[in-house]
């Protein structure tokens, strides 16, 4: 039996007395993608932070790869913030993250990813000087650099043009092919429908399987 990549059971979270998530259940198998669709304030970002282990749920349990302790080497995270250092160049950022994940030969890995995301011409430019769309490409490369087994992406298509969105779809599909489970969130489901195996609707802190797919 395959171990599930992610199991959330009755996960709830409150900020003070304000409940944000209420009793969410979600299972995700390796190689599968779950799309979580929700409007602003529905709790998507909080859920992403809980899935990534940045926030402990106030109730319920989270298990990644059959273990309640998170193996952070297996996790890739993309949020609204790009997690890039604006005074480092594109290449330096990726080299730093490759080193942080203990990978061998960070300069080579960074160069490979720069090529894959089509930013060769901007590799030596500081992040603060490149466009938001290219910054997003770089942030996605950062999240994928250590070949995670669980990829959590909060609105990954933000700021991307058509070519950028296609590139990211390709990278996600490639990750899924090698067995990576993917959690994607967005305001609307149009872009995610083609990628996701499962679709959930997050509304007022409750997660419901979307029967529309």
């Amino acid at each position: 039996m395959t171990t599930l990549a992610l199991q959330a059971h009755a996960v709830s979270h409150s900020f003070g007395s304000v409940p944000v998530l209420r009793g969410l259940n979600c299972d995700l198998a390796p190689g599968c993608a779950a799309a979580i669709i929700g409007s602003n304030g529905s709790g998507k970002s909080t859920l992403v932070r809980i899935f990534a282990g940045l926030l402990k749920p106030t109730a319920g349990s989270m298990v990644l790869f059959g273990d309640s302790r998170i193996d952070r080497r297996r996790l890739g995270l993309l949020t609204h913030q790009t997690f890039l250092y604006r005074n480092l160049t594109a290449r330096e950022n990726l080299e730093f993250y490759a080193a942080l994940y203990g990978m061998r030969n960070p300069p080579q890995i960074a160069a490979e990813w720069i090529e894959r995301i089509g930013l060769e011409a901007l590799a030596a430019y500081r992040v603060r000087t490149i466009s938001r769309g290219n910054e997003q490409r770089l942030a996605i490369a950062r999240a994928l650099i250590a070949n995670p087994d669980l990829l959590i992406m909060d609105e990954p298509f933000t700021a991307l043009d058509v070519a950028g969105a296609e590139l990211v779809k390709g990278l996600i599909a490639e990750s899924m092919e090698r067995g990576c489970a993917v959690v994607l969130t967005a305001h609307s489901g149009a872009t995610l429908t083609a990628i996701a195996c499962e679709r959930y609707e997050l509304s007022r802190g409750r997660l419901a399987a979307d029967k529309g797919t």
């Binding site: 282990g53 940045l54 995270l77 913030q81 890039l84």
Partner: peptide
């Protein structure tokens, strides 16, 4: 300020 603290916290460091 950059939110990069979260990148450090989710990394295996």
């Amino acid at each position: 300020d950059n939110g990069t603290i979260y990148a450090l916290l989710v990394s295996p460091v």
